[in-house]
Design a protein around this nucleic acid. Structure first.
Lengths: 224, 224
DNA sequence: TTATGATTAAAACGAACGTATGAATCATAA
DNA sequence: TTATGATTCATACGTTCGTTTTAATCATAA
């Protein structure tokens, strides 16, 4: 009794994850999903209720772990620091590094989920946006607070903006891995997929930290 | 004879631009577009041939100017430098600043087109991706070359990656202007839309330059 | 005024969509 | 073995999709 349903559910989730990543939510049909999963068309509505609920479950399956892990790592960092602020580089690594290292774990969705997440952050159907906002709120607040403490001399508004920019650079770096292959003649290096990921983490981390610690902007009409 | 068709065409393009931005390509129907434009349903196919062609025309109307302007500004910078490399900050401003300043010009699409562009870069239906890659190729190549010359000590692969990251931060900063309003309690500053744009440019520029000039990453197993 | 070509309008097309239904099939426990 | 509840299956429902068609309406030139 268990084997059949678990298999069907997971096959649907896997197919949905891959197809939503490749073609977006609106661009993916139930018939594509059930076809790729090798299950009956009615199985999605039977197991998940609706297409929207399936999409939410695709995310929840991965985000629950990711959010817990991010909390756990930050907890450990703060415990280790014992009241002192945590280094910005450690915070950035806890947030973005944890995400990127997820891509190396095929059991947690690997690159497929990461690219789905990246693209979804800028493709906000109303219900997806609301769902992601709810799922992310607690973690975002914790990390923002940590950055405020780590960079007390930087205005909070500036930190929020730069967190915003870091999210963008990261999501694009992932979601666009194939998109930009067309824009740039990607012949500079011949890296296989896992090698590219191994090198992406330090590359992106350098970039993010450089941006986070950049000199503050001068607004028009303000002095130094 | 001219007035009717030009009006209809532009009304359709304006409605398409706004709706594609708000709901994506697949999420927008011809009936929504013609309804908002106040024209007959058949008008899109009459004037543009198909929904895909309309989407392409929505982009071409804005990108032609943007690409020309980016080329023009870089030409001027290189002429001014007279054979010497152009400063990285000037190149970044020519590429990203030109884009962002477009958002202040309502005649060139303003924030609406900018957000559409930002979101489309990570929402690549096959035909859109191919189209954008074609439209952008020449400009991207010119700017990459300029950055190679401006930063001769940085490996080309690293520059390409960082250009990639900068694109992501920028597109997300624009496309996500409303998306993230739900994630963060955006009460830190009360800025109206134009004020936010005025401050976004220097903010983003500082971040991008900080990232572009960050220390090079250390890969595992490599020395300093 | 009338002829002509461009544009708009109303209506319909077949295809694909998400979802619902009821019967068939399965695994399990009495 | 049989009864039961869970799951799968084939099929159809009503809608909406992008597109096409044909006729009406418009602006212009002869």
């Amino acid at each position: 009794m268990e084997n059949r349903t678990v298999d069907t559910r997971e096959r649907i989730l896997d197919a949905g994850e891959r197809l939503f990543m490749a073609h977006g939510y609106e661009g993916t049909s139930m018939r594509q999903i059930t076809g790729e999963a090798g299950v009956n068309l009615a199985a999605v509505n039977y197991h998940f209720g609706s297409k929207e609920s399936l999409m939410q479950e695709v995310f929840r399956r991965r985000l629950d772990w990711l959010n817990d892990e991010r909390m756990r790592v930050l907890d450990a960092l703060e415990a280790e620091a014992g009241g002192q602020p945590v280094k910005p580089s450690a915070i950035v690594d806890a947030f973005f590094g944890t995400l990127l290292r997820m891509a190396g774990d095929e059991n947690r969705g690997g690159m497929t989920f990461l690219r789905l997440l990246g693209r979804t952050l800028t493709e906000p159907s109303e219900f997806i946006r609301a769902f992601l906002a709810h799922e992310y709120k607690a973690v975002m607040d914790r990390y923002k607070e940590a950055l405020f403490k780590a960079l007390p001399e930087v205005p909070k508004a500036e930190i929020v903006w730069r967190f915003h920019f870091m999210l963008g650079a990261t999501s694009y770096a992932i979601a666009g891995t194939d998109a930009l292959r067309l824009v740039t003649d990607w012949q500079i290096e011949a890296e296989d997929s896992t090698d590219r990921l191994d090198r992406l983490v330090p590359r992106l981390m350098s970039f993010l930290l450089g941006g986070l610690r950049a000199p503050l902007p001068q607004f028009e009409g303000e002095g130094a």
